[in-house]
Design a protein around this nucleic acid. Structure first.
Length: 586
RNA sequence: GGCCCCAUAGCUCAGUUGGAUAGAGCAAUCGCCUUCUAAGCGAUAGGUCGCAGGUUCGAAUCCUGCUGGGGUCGCCA
């Protein structure tokens, strides 16, 4: 239950009542109405701008309107106080029981707490990773993988029907290069001395393994064969093998895709022709000559007629080529077909997660998606900025060119999947992220992974102690929910925790709508911080500890609180794909 | 040159889709602490939200124009 939404709906009803009573005109636009926690806790628990946004259309001063609302709100038993502040805010303080009851909600719902019906089961397609099948995933891919996966989980929690999808770019020139590189390694595996890997081929060591495997499967079958024969064989073999690795790596990271879409299969099935025909029918394709890029004219520039898509009609800056000069389709054409295909599979809400270097591609893809689906589908593109790998403040050198780069697997093996996942979400997607191998495993307050996990571990530790101290007592969440007298929770810190947990459903909804999973990480840090604060109070004042000898009632109430905190942390970590820990010892 | 992203405390970053006196961690200063789990706790100080306009009850947030940094720019994917 999202308490803020409950009040928002109730306030809308009150406004209807005011209209029925003739205080304000009926049918005022309340789209801008908000009910949210004020930044300043001193202002109360909830705050609404209703009086301010309606003042002008209602023809009444905001404070007068606020008076009317306050009078109505004050009659509610769950409202402890309602007052007007500033330019016309209505601030509410809720009775403590409203917050305490949320603890019971948590205990009853378990880690399902925070789930919402916001998405109403609408399908959403989240496409992420989609790394070229030409080599193992490297560290930077990890960010897109984690981001996309957490976003998918978040949307699921918010009630959407999510499909996780990986687009395999197995149709371009790069996979022919892969095929040639593999052929060389294959001959090498058969004993041929191949020497230096020629420029233009992939030098990576990992292809030795692919060549070896191919030699084992096919023997010397391809030596001396026509390129027309060995190239597709080597290419397809390598793609299949590398995709296995990629799936394995993703598995280690805890990422499981629902759908792998092959570009080659799509092209083969004629999807590109269908898509371009659709655009053609709408008069969005023409043959024309593009202007050279302003201010940065390539040396070999020459005007030439190309088949172009009229993307300028949909917010793009220039029209974009659909065919290369040899008549074959550009990657863009295939991509249009792919996004059209998603639409035809029922996805009108599409999200793509890309690396920041593809920023220049966003407008045309959105333009094309809008154009080809006649505005029915919307595409949101989330760009993930670079990850800077560091070790004790020193940058870790990466060179894809030389074939030496830090693979995602290396990173996971060094610090663990949970640390990778958590850290990748501690920055907004459009900020560059520094990943320091030393810092991310540090056991201190400035490491958010540790801090959040520590809070969970402390909760579990308290419950373990309680189980020993109160042998025989049923301390399950259900039992605590049933028997705890939550009225015994009344300290400032306890109420702060209860309120923080009450905002989790709201956070899920707003983060899901904004497509910003990093907010979950920050929320958990805040929740952990509230919990640690309460814990620390118990150091100075024994009466504030959780287990109080001789007062079972307060102990049970506090155990309910602690159990709820652990549950909400676990619920948040589940969205991030991180396993909560029972204790910090390792 | 066009387009996209970024610019918030000394540093690293949040900022609830336009709300009230802009927050957290680190570093700094000052106290405390040896534990229901050790990897500490509390307090203080720190700001022209890059600059200048605009929109309105109200702007870090939206619009315009600048400045600085990054990315990208017709037959790469």
């Amino acid at each position: 239950m999202n308490i803020f939404k409950v009040f928002e709906n109730d306030i809308r009803k009150l406004l209807d009542e005011l209209a029925a009573e003739g205080h304000i005109p009926a049918g005022l636009d309340t789209a801008r109405l908000t009910v949210e926690p004020p930044r300043e806790a001193a202002h109360g628990d909830l705050s609404t701008n209703a009086a301010m946004i309606l003042a002008k259309p209602a023809g009444k001063p905001p404070r007068a309107l606020a008076e009317l609302l306050v009078a109505k709100l004050k009659t509610r038993p769950d409202v402890a106080s309602a007052e007007i502040a500033g330019p016309g805010f209505v601030n509410l303080r809720l009775s403590a029981d409203v917050w305490r009851d949320r603890i019971r909600d948590v205990l009853t719902a378990g880690t399902a707490y925070g789930e919402s019906t916001l998405g109403a089961g609408r399908p959403v397609n989240v496409e992420y990773v989609s790394a070229n099948p030409t080599g193992p995933l490297h560290a930077a891919h990890g960010r897109g993988a984690v981001f996309g996966d957490a976003l998918a989980a978040l949307l699921e929690k918010a009630g959407y029907a999510v499909t996780r999808e990986y687009y395999i770019n197995d149709a371009g020139a790069q996979v022919d290069v892969l095929g040639r590189s593999t052929f060389l390694r294959y001959r090498e595996a058969l004993g041929e001395a191949v020497g230096e890997i020629p420029a233009g081929l992939y030098p990576g060591e990992y292809l030795k393994e692919v060549g070896q495997a191919l030699a084992e499967r096919d023997g010397s079958k391809w030596v001396g064969a026509d390129e027309a024969d060995w190239l597709p064989a080597c290419r397809d073999f390598a793609i299949a093998r590398i995709m296995e690795w990629i799936e394995e790596d993703l598995g280690v990271l805890g990422v499981r895709m629902d759908v792998y879409s092959s570009e080659r299969a799509l092209v083969k099935a004629g999807a590109v022709d269908i898509a371009l025909k659709a655009l053609e029918d709408r008069g969005l394709i023409y043959v024309g000559v593009l202007e050279p890029p302003k201010g940065k004219k390539p040396d070999d520039w020459e005007p030439r007629p190309q088949t172009l898509f009229k993307s300028t009609g949909f917010g793009d800056d220039v029209d974009r080529p659909l065919k290369k000069s040899d008549g074959s389709f550009t990657y863009f054409s295939n991509d249009i077909a792919y996004h059209f295909d998603k639409h035809r599979r029922g996805f009108d809400a599409q999200i793509d997660v890309w690396g920041a270097d593809h920023g220049g591609y966003v407008k045309r893809m959105q333009a094309a998606t809008t154009a080809i689906t006649e505005g029915k589908a919307s595409l949101d593109v989330k760009l993930c900025q670079l990850v800077h790998l560091m070790k004790n403040g020193e940058p870790v050198k990466m060179s894809k060119r030389a074939g030496t780069f830090v693979t995602l697997r290396d990173v996971i093996e060094e610090v663990g999947k949970d640390v990778v996942r958590f850290i990748m979400l501690t920055r907004r997607n459009d900020q560059t992220l520094e990943f320091d191998f030393a810092k991310v495993v540090e056991q201190s307050k400035d490491n958010p992974v540790f801090y959040v996990q520590y809070a969970h571990a402390r909760c579990r530790s308290v419950l373990r102690h309680a189980a020993t101290a109160m042998a025989g007592a049923d301390l399950s969440a259900a039992a605590l929910a049933a028997k705890a007298n939550l009225a015994r929770l009344d300290t400032e810190e306890e109420m702060a925790l209860a309120k923080r947990m009450a905002t989790w459903p709201r956070l899920v909804e707003s983060a899901a709508e904004a497509h910003e999973p990093h907010r979950v990480a920050f929320y958990l840090y805040d929740l952990a911080s509230d919990f640690h604060a309460l814990w620390n109070k118990g150091r100075d004042d024994a009466s504030l500890r959780f287990l109080i000898d001789g007062d079972e009632e307060v102990t049970v109430a506090r155990l309910a609180l602690v159990s709820a905190v652990a549950t909400v942390i676990a619920s948040g970590l589940a969205v991030m794909g991180v396993e909560p820990v029972e204790e910090m010892r390792s």
